[in-house]
Design a protein around this nucleic acid. Sequence first.
RNA 1: UCCCUGUUAGCUCAAUGGUAGAGCGAUCGGCUGUUAACCGAUAGGUUGUAGGUUCGAGUCCUACACGGGGAGCCA
Length: 549
Amino acid sequence: MFSVRLRRVGPGEQLLPRMRRSRRIRRPPTPLELPPFSGGFRMSWLRVVDALSPAKSPVGTRVTVKGWVRTRRDSKAEGGLSFVAVHDGTCFDAIQAVVKGDIPNYASDVTKLTTHCSVEVTGVIAQTPKGGNELQVEVATGGEVKVIGWVDDPDQYPIQPKQHTFEYLREQAHLRVRTNTFGAVARMRHCLSMAIHRFYHERGFYYVHTPIITGSDCEGAGNMFKVSTLDMMRPLPRVSPENESAESKKLREEFSKKPNMPAWTYGQVDHSTDFFGKESHLTVSGQLNVETHCCALSRVYTFGPTFRAENSNTSRHLAEFWMIEPEIAFADLQADSELAEDFIKFLINAALTERADDMKFFDERIEKGLLTRLDHVLKTPFRRLPYTEAIKILEQAIAKGEKFEYPVKWGTDLQSEHERYLTEKHFKQPVILMNYPKQIKAFYMRLNAPGTDGAPGDTVAAMDVLVPGVGEIIGGSQREERIDVLDARITEMGLPIKEYWWYRDLRRFGTVPHAGFGLGFERAMMFITGMQNVRDVIPFPRTPKNAEF
RNA sequence: UCCCUGUUAGCUCAAUGGUAGAGCGAUCGGCUGUUAACCGAUAGGUUGUAGGUUCGAGUCCUACACGGGGAGCCA
């Protein structure tokens, strides 16, 4: 564990390794294991996660940790001592600092510490008297507790050392990450994000950055947020040519020349004067764009924010959420569903192996039996089921006395209650529903051969992955690669075919069967952590009437 | 957007139309190698906002705002 520091070499300067400054009997462990090409960035103190690791910090090691106070308990024994739990977010646990009363600032500082004061603690790693391998840091003569930042008024600090409701903490979104639950959620978001990139990278997928601003209104998934630099707030003449006076025409033309002024034609904003020269929106999906790269790079994926302007108030919907959209060339729906299943299982495995501490907490405090449930999901193949079969199962359930609010009928979309019945009651495992009636699905989904699954009507190669507790977590399909069939679908659905010129080009020039899906990242978070509300698995949730923070 | 439901101390919740309370947290003190610590005391309130009914409204009525659950839409 010989540690050197490489510096940038100036003119005439020699590159020399510099010895660590500290030469104690027991050398402190390397604070961070740094990869090659590391430069000046180095931290001289230890992360709590390393201080708690017997391998990195054996008993007797002198360490410095920096973090925030979670709790403080005092004792009068041995002439006074305090137990200060210090956490720095690097792992679920805090390390307990046992501070003896003989350090100089004990009475003045240590006994006044309250929740979330920031501190720098230097002491010696020791075993706790009770817990088996549990480590703590003992601060006695020679050790130090330096207060970096006080909590001015502990009574005013919104995060008290007690249970808070998630609803309350949502209003304190800037502070809630300091709690056990939201710290764990934040680490899980990171863990799963990295796992997503690793999963695709290892399988030869290329990461594509699809645009966030889109000029096409043809992505076909819900209401969109408008992007504009025009100042819609100022009063403007709204006229149509028939009744426009010479005076108002002049006024309108003058207005149009001012910066950020919307011009109006026929009572509507003329977007040719807008920043992009046309009406533009925030993306609702990267799929159409990522298909272009799929049809050149074979295996691609996007992972980015997505925006839906639905007035949707449920525990599973956000106006701004993150979505992963892989797209594979030369693939059909079966391959697509296998990718989806592998992907979800990979994420579960990553969570269980990389964040065992946080997952243990979710299992104990958020959803009892979470680990058992996920283990079951890992070990069981997903149930694949044609839509037509699902309808039959639901009809049989009704015949047996199951009560649904909405009727079950081939050709209509399944309601939430139907999906929940299938995945939570009937199969009790993730279910992949495939081959939906074409009239309830998007134009780009591939038309199946007549009579597929014995369906009474036309179906498309679409799939939804349903999981217990969350519902639809993935929506995907094989894409229509036949230009004539695609054109017919676009026309049939009354969509503006001209707008799809570049999408259609993919079918005109060397078309290939291809398929893909979209996984809602926050829904995956809910599924894997057991958190009940999508607003609690994203740092700053954006929902109707709420864009605070 | 629709249906249901809620809004009282810093937080979580009580309070027949008749004097606004508890637990936790905070502060102070006591006890203790503590760890959801424990014991005692103290402070803390224009009952979401605006109207209305009533001798009297936290409580009943209306509107609005915001939160939660469900539905639709979807990931």
